[in-house]
Design a protein around this nucleic acid. Structure first.
Lengths: 221, 221
DNA sequence: TCAAAAGTGTTCCGAATACACCCATGA
DNA sequence: TCATGGGTGTATTCGGAACACTTTTGA
C-alpha cells in the first residue's frame, strides 16, 4: 500500500469499432503496474496542465497510436479499492472509430505492450474495474445511438445502407427489419445520397454519407 | 498560482427541489477560496479513503445539513483553468430532495456561510464553472424524468396527482394536459392508490404513493 | 443458374395529442 | 354562490412493427 495524501486522477478509454458485424473494444496488455500481463483499457495519469479530454486523447495515442477518434466522457470511477496500490480516481471515456485503416493501429510506445480488438461481450479478465467500465460504455452507446447521429463516428465517409444497418445491429445486439430501417433513416434529415455505387460480389448498393459529421440530437431508430 | 504536481479531486452537488411550482437549486455562499462572497454549489475535496459518492454525501451534509437526498453522479469537470488558483478536477453530482422538512436545511458548518434555494433558471453569478454544472444538471434531470421514475425523489411518500404533475411541469418547464397526464401515469405500474384523501381549500384529492421508491427505468411521460 | 445482398409498400396496432364538461369542497 | 382544483372519455393522428417478393450482379 502506497497511498498519496489525496486521490490521483487518471483517464481510461474504452475505444470501440464495429468489425465483422461485431462491436469490439481495444485492449492493451499491461506491462507494469498492479496487473502486469493483464488486459486493460488504454489510459493513464492526467498531467497538471491538460484537460481531461486532452489527457484521454494523449494516452490513447501514446499507448495505441490511435488518433482522430471520437471521444466522449462516460463516467468517473472512484472506489477507494479499484486500484489495489494507490488511490486513483479514473475518468472513463467512450471512444468510437471507423473500422477502416485508422483502426489498424500502431504498436504501443508507453508502459503497455500488445493490442487487441476484442468482442465487447466476450471480454477476457480485465485489470482494475475495467470490465465494469466496458459494460457501462456499451450501455451508454446502445442508448445513445437511438436518439443521436453518433454512428457516423463508426463509419467511413461513404457507406451503404446495409453497412449502416450492420453497425446498428452490432451495437444493439439484435437484428432490424431492413425495410423499416431504410424507411426510417431515409425519412430523417440524416443522410445524403452520393453519386456512385458500391460494387461487391452482388448487386451494387447505393452510397450515402451523413449530412453532418458532428454530434446531433436527432431522433434515430 | 499555487499548483500541485497533479490535479486534486473535488465533488460538487447540485441539489434540487421543487417548491412553489419551481425547480430550485441549493446554493451556498463561499467564505474562503478564490471566490469569497460568491454563490457556489456545496462541495469540497475528496478524502483519501472515501468513495466519490461518500464524499458528495459528506460535503453536502457538512455544508448544508442535508441528509437523505438522492445523489447521482453527473459529469466530471476538469478544465485546467476552472479554479484560478489550483488544478482541481471536480466530479459533479445531481441531488434530489422533496420539498418537505428535509429541505429546510440546517446552517452550514464548513467554510461556506449562507444558504439559499434559488430558481434553477434564474441563477446569480456563480463561482468556478458552477453555472455550467447547474445547466448540465438541469438537462440531465429533464431527460431522465421522462424515462425513469426519478421524480419519486422529489415527492413525499403520499401525494396527489396534481402535485405529481406540478413536479413534472416544473422540471420540464412546460404545462401538461391534465387528462393525458393522469391517463398515462395511471396506465403504468408506477403508483398505488392510498386510502385517504388530501383535503385542501377545495375538492379533496386522492392520495397516491410510488410502488417502489428506488430507481427504475420505466417508460414515463 | 445460382447465391447473395439490394431494393421496395401496405396493413395493423398502440401511443400521443387535442379537446370540454361536471364535481366536491371551503371560503 | 363562487372560486378552485379534482375527476373523467373520445376522436384523431402518427409512428413502429410485421410482413414477401423482385432485382441485379459476380461467380
Amino acid at each position: 500500500m502506497n497511498r498519496a495524501s489525496a486521490p490521483a486522477v487518471a483517464v481510461d478509454v474504452a475505444l470501440f469499432t464495429v468489425r465483422d458485424a461485431t462491436l469490439q473494444v481495444l485492449l492493451v496488455r499491461a506491462r507494469h503496474g498492479p496487473f502486469p500481463g493483464w488486459w486493460a483499457l488504454p489510459g493513464g495519469r492526467v498531467a497538471e496542465s491538460e484537460s481531461l479530454d486532452d489527457a484521454a486523447r494523449r494516452e490513447l495515442r501514446a499507448q495505441t497510436g490511435v488518433t482522430g477518434a471520437y471521444l466522449e466522457q462516460l463516467y468517473t470511477f472512484g472506489s477507494p479499492t479499484r486500484d489495489p496500490r494507490d488511490r486513483v480516481v479514473s475518468v472513463a471515456y467512450v471512444g468510437l472509430l471507423p473500422a477502416g485503416p485508422a483502426a489498424r493501429v500502431a504498436l504501443g510506445s508507453g508502459k503497455y505492450a500488445d493490442l487487441a480488438w476484442t468482442p465487447a461481450t466476450r471480454l477476457p479478465p480485465l485489470a482494475y474495474d475495467h470490465r465494469t467500465v466496458v459494460r457501462t460504455a456499451v450501455a451508454r452507446l446502445r442508448a445513445k445511438v437511438q436518439y443521436t447521429n453518433l454512428v457516423y463516428t463508426l463509419l467511413p465517409r461513404a457507406f451503404t445502407l446495409g453497412e449502416l444497418q450492420a453497425v446498428y445491429e452490432a451495437i444493439l445486439g439484435r437484428g432490424l427489419d431492413r425495410r423499416n430501417f431504410r424507411k426510417k433513416v431515409l425519412s430523417l434529415p440524416l443522410l445524403q445520397r452520393l453519386p456512385g455505387t458500391r460494387r461487391g460480389a452482388h448487386r451494387p448498393a447505393a452510397l450515402y454519407a451523413f449530412q453532418r459529421r458532428r454530434p446531433l440530437v436527432t431522433e434515430v431508430l
